[in-house]
Amino acid sequence: MLYFAVRRFLSALLVMFAISVLVFLIFFATPGVDPAARIAGRNADPATLAQVRHSFGLDRPLPIRYLLMMRHLLVDRDLESFVNRGSRVIPQIVQATPVTLSLVVGAAVIWMAVGILMGTAAATLRGTAVDPLIMLVGVVGVSLPAYWLGEVVNLITQKQLHGTVFSWVPPPGYVGPSQDVGQWALHLLFPWLTLSVLYAGIYARLLRGEIITALNEDYVRTARAKGISERRILVRHALRCSLIPIVSLFGLDFGALVGGAALLTEVVFGLPGIGKLTFDALQNLDLPVIMGTVLYAAFFVVLANALVDVLYARLDPRARHA
């Protein structure tokens, strides 16, 4: 276990190092591009450019510049945004994290619940008209782009029907759970639903396939021959075994989303999360912030991978040591 943790930690460091170098090189070593011009933002005057060049030591060799940047980011934690001078990167990320976590955790609960329900129902009712219907709903959910669905939801709840049915929907934005849990949930309700619609369909579809395979397994026949009820066979045997691949997929999706992949949903609903932060930074080519969020995302993806491995061993005894 210790060996595993150390290995994971080392591989995480390696991944993060590689990503940071890559991002750094894209900004500073692309030929024909003046990094100062990028740092200073768009339409900066020559005086600002010169000042930027000086203050960032752009005349020094690349490795030194990389190390300087990393020291500011991680050790001194005083790396500032190039665009909004004065606002530091680390506090921005720290501020954005709970928003993204709130969004992703809530959505994950919904999509797993709905996905498992839909997948199980479809698998049990296969051969009837319900199964293709459920799958159709799932496919429709998967095929709706998040920004489009989000905009439509906003259009309906904030404008078209805001006067009547959806008068209770608060304006886009985020309220921390420490301030008011009710408002927190209310603000996040539609973002949650929007995000989970995308994933519930995929999970339902996957799970349906897994359960159908499991129901044809010998051990299900054994269970039937034991005289166990169909419901118990479905839940305790077929579903339990089908969840193993689902859970590992879930871990990866969850990690990516916490890492900022929920960007579109956050932007559409005006949630100041990691995705939104990355989005804004990208628009302004704000390198320090991009560097920060990218490293943060890499960290979560690696962490999620590690958690999946542990969880996998918990779920599947065959993956534990003999």
Partner: peptide, 10 residues
């Protein structure tokens, strides 16, 4: 017949 698959693995 097949004892390898007759028991639920988990």
């Amino acid at each position: 017949q097949d004892p390898m698959t007759a028991l639920t693995p988990v």
